[in-house]
Write a protein that binds this DNA or RNA. Structure first.
Lengths: 146, 146
DNA sequence: AATAAATTCCATCGTATTGGTAGAATTACT
DNA sequence: AGTAATTCTACCAATACGATGGAATTTATT
């Protein structure tokens, strides 16, 4: 309504913000700790929201942190080794259009009659593999290149 | 919690049911009208839910219908000409991870500082193009092959 | 004309997710 | 002690998702 075009995108803001934070931290690698507030301000991310996101990234081992005065965040892995697929998996779940082709958390489709002969499964498997490939190839390093 | 693994998939049930209905109708092509109730029963789709989905498909021109006694649905396009990308677009929106790379409904990212130099845009464009390609290549006909 | 069978249309509804906020607790340096 | 930072927990509004219910309409058959 009211002239507003609703646009559905496949990636959550959480995931996008996580990627932006990682790219930011990768750029500052070796230059000491980075404040959440700085990332938030420079990347236009609500600070309190970003806090949560950085915590998730920390628990998953992508970033490290130091508490207290002079603290902050820093990246812990080489930028080439962290892919969009990894971060998508962490925040937005499986890279699969249907549960029965999910790599990590396979689940049978509730409405499936016979998985063995299901041609949807076969085709969606192909789609997933292609999508996963390109998302795996795109790393934090890819975003750093000019 | 409680041992239940939440699995997030990228495609809505609406979209999946729509594809299943189209495949079903494609199989019955030339054999007269198909009842919603039959599709619902054979494909394990809630009937009232399926009704809505078929209406959307009808308005978009993918199926036709006949009201009243002896009525039902039938497919109106060649199975090769309807792709997963088309149906995904109709029910689940853009095949794009971020709004600024969406083909149909482009929108500027709210948190973007400069779209021209944005490397996320560049990389997400690549991802979208790959994903779109494979989803475009997969048609209703693809699912019919044994 | 009545009936039955089907689509069509519209409204509602519970639950989960999303995106974000608030505030207190903790840690560590000065 | 005070200050600056992360950490943790809870909460909240808006929206999407996955349906369900019921009435209206159309059409073939009896």
């Amino acid at each position: 309504m009211s002239g507003f075009v609703y646009l559905q995108t496949m990636m959550s803001k959480k995931c996008k913000y996580a990627l932006k934070a990682l790219i930011y931290l990768a750029r500052k690698q070796g230059k000491g700790n980075v404040f959440t507030a700085d990332i938030a301000a420079d990347e236009n991310i609500p600070k309190k929201f970003l806090e949560q996101i950085l915590l998730v990234l920390k628990r998953a081992g992508y970033v490290g942190s130091q508490t207290g005065y002079g603290g902050g965040y820093f990246i812990t892995k080489p930028a080439e080794s962290v892919s969009v697929a990894d971060i998508h998996r962490l925040f937005d779940g499986a890279i699969a259009l249907v549960p029965c082709v999910a790599f990590d958390y396979y689940q049978q489709c509730a409405d499936c009659n016979d998985e063995v002969t299901c041609t949807m499964r076969r085709e969606f498997m192909k789609i997933k593999e292609q999508t996963r490939l390109v998302m795996k190839e795109t790393s934090i390093q890819s975003f750093l290149e000019p």
